[in-house]
Nucleic acid binder design. Structure first.
Length: 362
DNA sequence: GAGGCGTGGAA
DNA sequence: TTTCCAAGCCT
């Protein structure tokens, strides 16, 4: 693939990678998982951060990264932890298959590689939860390998740089080829992080700051004065609505919870018992699915929550269980809700019950 | 290739 | 309020 070049003020020829790295050396973001200039990156921390950052913002990741690093300082410690503890620590970050795969990957690194992460893309790619992007990122950033890490940022930067009209995801192979052609063989790790910094701070999805961009003079989309027109993407389908009910059962200071199946939506996480979540939910029939017989009261408020592929509206039925009431099959009485792996949608249920005033009434 | 899989913040 | 989306992976 051809390398565009331009003249610098001093007259030497300047590649996009050189311009990018010069910008990165001045403007690099200081992030908790990022080695300082001259320092060696810890593969465990690079890997941990890359898994957390999948489809997740830096702001959301920071507190989770700190907590994980403090609680499990190395891959052996994480591998030795119960998977339930990992799920609980992950609660709120979303995409919970990542947490299960994180733990499985830690165990695999200990068993297969004696607790040392492998350095090649091909080996990393075999580990659970590590796909093409993460394998490239860890190989380049933690081990200095000649690998590119093509994430959403890089796709956007490359698609604009070359004004690629093929829509995503069909354009991915072409974009990856362009990325490899740009790669600086001396600094693959910095190149990967520089591309992501550029996409995150300059070459943003909306209103990119082309005047500050080190690649401005190379960029075909900027030359056409409409960088926001790239990357091309197929239109997404509208998010359908689903409804359901959650049953908030209290027995003294305890609450009735159950654990969702390990696979699928919110896999392995805790929840209040409830109905199916469906488009044709009928609130008048909701109590047929109640986990035990009680004097239920439906709250006036509902809980709304946006999942990736549908929008959920939840009715909430509250009731007190009598002392000595046995938990139904698959459920358990829980006294410490904070120790549970409660996803955000279920925390919203708790908040709704608290704000309703029912909680204080006897 | 397409769809499932969370969440919270920005515009 | 609605829409979009942020360092993807798995099936």
């Amino acid at each position: 693939m051809d390398q565009p070049l331009r003249q610098t003020p001093k007259g030497e020829r300047c590649s996009p990678a050189a311009a990018l790295l010069a910008w990165y050396d001045r403007q690099r973001r200081d992030l908790p998982w990022r080695a300082k200039p001259g320092e060696t990156a810890d593969p465990y921390l690079v890997w941990l951060s890359e898994i957390m950052l999948q489809q997740t913002t830096v702001t959301a990741v920071k507190p989770y990264f700190d907590a994980f690093r403090r609680r499990w300082p190395d891959v052996a410690a994480l591998a030795a932890a119960p998977v339930e503890a990992v799920m609980q620590q992950w609660a709120g970050l979303g995409y919970y298959a990542r947490a299960r795969n994180l733990h499985a990957c830690a165990k695999a690194v200990v068993v297969w590689y004696g607790g040392q992460f492998p350095a090649t893309e091909a080996e990393l790619r075999q580990l659970p939860g590590i796909g093409p992007y993460t394998a490239g990122a860890v190989a380049a950033i933690a081990f200095g390998r000649q690998a590119v890490a093509v994430d959403g940022n890089v796709e956007r930067v490359i698609a604009r740089l070359y004004a690629i009209d093929t829509p995503l995801p069909a354009a991915k192979p072409l974009i990856a080829a362009h990325a490899r052609s740009l790669l600086d063989p001396e600094r693959p790790g910095d190149f990967a992080q520089a591309m992501m910094d550029l996409g995150a701070t300059i070459c943003t999805p909306r209103r990119p700051l082309c005047g500050l961009c080190p690649l401005n003079t190379f960029c075909l989309a900027a030359a056409r004065l409409s960088p926001e027109d790239w990357p091309r993407k197929a239109a997404k389908a509208a998010r359908p609505a689903r409804r359901g009910a959650a049953f908030f059962l209290r027995r003294g200071a305890e609450l009735l919870l159950r654990t969702r199946p390990p696979q699928g939506l919110l896999g392995g996480m805790s929840e209040f018992p409830g109905t199916e979540w469906s488009a044709d939910y009928d609130p008048t029939n909701a109590l047929r699915d109640a986990p035990l017989i009680a004097d239920y009261h439906r709250l006036d408020v509902t809980v709304m929550h946006q999942f990736t592929h549908f929008i959920l509206t939840l009715d909430i039925f509250v009731a007190d269980g009598r002392r000595g009431t046995k938990p139904p099959q698959g459920c358990r009485w829980v006294s410490d809700i904070e120790a549970e792996a409660l996803p955000s949608v279920m925390r919203k249920v708790v908040a709704a019950v608290r704000s309703s005033g029912w909680w204080e009434r006897a």
